[in-house]
Design a protein around this nucleic acid. Sequence first.
DNA 1: GTCTATATGGGGATAGAC
DNA 2: GTCTATCCCCATATAGAC
Lengths: 218, 218
Amino acid sequence: MTGTKQRILEVAERLFAERGFSGTSLRTIIGEAGVNLAAVHYHFHSKDALLEAVILRRLEPVNRERLAMLEACEHAARGGPPPVEDILRAFIEPTVHLVRDPQRRGSIFARLMGRLHAEAASAFAEIAKKHFGEIGRRFKEALERALPEVPQSEIFWRMHFAIGAMAQTLRGSPELEALSGGQCRASNPEDAVPRLIAFLAAGFQAPVSIPHAQEKVS
Amino acid sequence: MTGTKQRILEVAERLFAERGFSGTSLRTIIGEAGVNLAAVHYHFHSKDALLEAVILRRLEPVNRERLAMLEACEHAARGGPPPVEDILRAFIEPTVHLVRDPQRRGSIFARLMGRLHAEAASAFAEIAKKHFGEIGRRFKEALERALPEVPQSEIFWRMHFAIGAMAQTLRGSPELEALSGGQCRASNPEDAVPRLIAFLAAGFQAPVSIPHAQEKVS
DNA sequence: GTCTATATGGGGATAGAC
DNA sequence: GTCTATCCCCATATAGAC
């Protein structure tokens, strides 16, 4: 039966999300998945490759949907730049409302993404660089067109801040939820995403006060 | 000689920041510190306790300076609420321009804080909850006064986003720096902090569009 | 306070039978 | 494809001499 490979992927995804990559051992994974240790090395070749498989399984559809949403809102804008909110939504929503996933597995992967943004796992760093390059450029261009008054390098900074806020939201923050006394359950994407988009859109549109050397300002 | 304890603390801080907690072994630490393995267990009792010592050594002065800066800007506002920018600066700058540290050790700890915000290390979760509670409440109150038009629960959300953006900035992001072709070196606090504050201040002042149940709106 | 030596367990990976 | 058995190394932690 080849449910084995699937079960490994799903348990690994959950445990990596909960405990991090280096905090999760293959033996824990196989224990919860009820499979044999050798099966992991048979289906994937190493722990690093398992992580890569876990990520790619979700990231590729997410990135496809991101581009589709971006193109849709650009088309809707009929030549002009779409509103910043729409561009941000195209980037953020596919990560949360993951594909057409009946269970809540999407949010588990979202937590994994948020967590891996912070972890050292070199395997992830390469994957991120490889798969983020194209997406990043595409959204950067869209944001530049939508924000002609913001210099190019400042767009990078603000994308940086935005991704941090998004990653924090994806992974959740126990101490802040505790502080709010349950008023803000960041783990609930339906509550979080519209607020996040409003916050980030305002940030992107903030006036630029820091001098930027040798740049086209529009 | 008790340089041993110091050297362990400093090497551990750097390695935890670079590779994460579970990604760093005591053996790597003692190798770089040039001390004996048993010395770690003698001076600290366990790896968890070592992490706690590493964090507390920096976090307590940081939180003191945060409160001092907050009180200073509140005093300067003479009864009225201080500008949001000043409140944010009081929270962010002490993490970066750490105490009066001659070397660049401050930024190493900053990276550690950014990274640990994401890692599972239960030891850190407890420390964060304990030491963030007071600071969090204090800054939440200040932000509420400065933003009377923003409902209370929305303040929590925006603090959440802000801390995510701050943590990302503290820890740096190789893929974004690569994308920018070196235009935005997030690891350089002097460049990052003023931009981060401007971005976050705009986000905090964004108009509130999502309905908030049963709350004082001012 | 600092060392050597060692206890004890867990880690990723592989060979080879079935 | 799946299993058992095992290699080999690394992990945290401790005991006890100096």
